[in-house]
Amino acid sequence: MSQFPIELIVFSAFSISAIVFSLLVVEHKSLVYSALSLAFLGISNAALFALLGFDYIALFQISVYVGAAVMFILFSATLFREIPPTEVPMRAAAIGIAILVIAAIAAIFLPYNEVVLSPVSIPWDKEGGLARTLVQSYWFPFLVVALALITTLIEGITLARREEVVE
């Protein structure tokens, strides 16, 4: 069991599922299944956040990102007519660009190959924790984000409501 620690198994499972679901988002023909795969990608990512020690960010990711935003896409996708897939001439170029970007990022972050992940959870309400830093140092961006979410809600309702028929 010491050869296969539980963290390694959890990481492998969720990183593979994240990659598979991101491929499904891009490649699946149906919009609804793509949106559903995006939800599962968000959940896999949240598990990786928790593994990194950011438990509260993982909860936030599941409740706000998956629970609200991705579900919004999922239910909106049912409104659209499915567009039949067409041949895209840029497929080979896109694969080349994607591989180039992955190789560049891997090369840039190569020095982090030595940094071992210590099993520490990032505190929420203690000194230096997320909540205190957010309220004490980052209260203005927090306010702006809250206003942006409220504005989006109003904008979404205004744009998506049924038009009234004038007789």
Binding site: Y112, V116, L117
Partner: peptide, 10 residues
Amino acid sequence: MLVIYSFLIT
């Protein structure tokens, strides 16, 4: 033993 680099590669 997990390293940060594996997360970055993912």
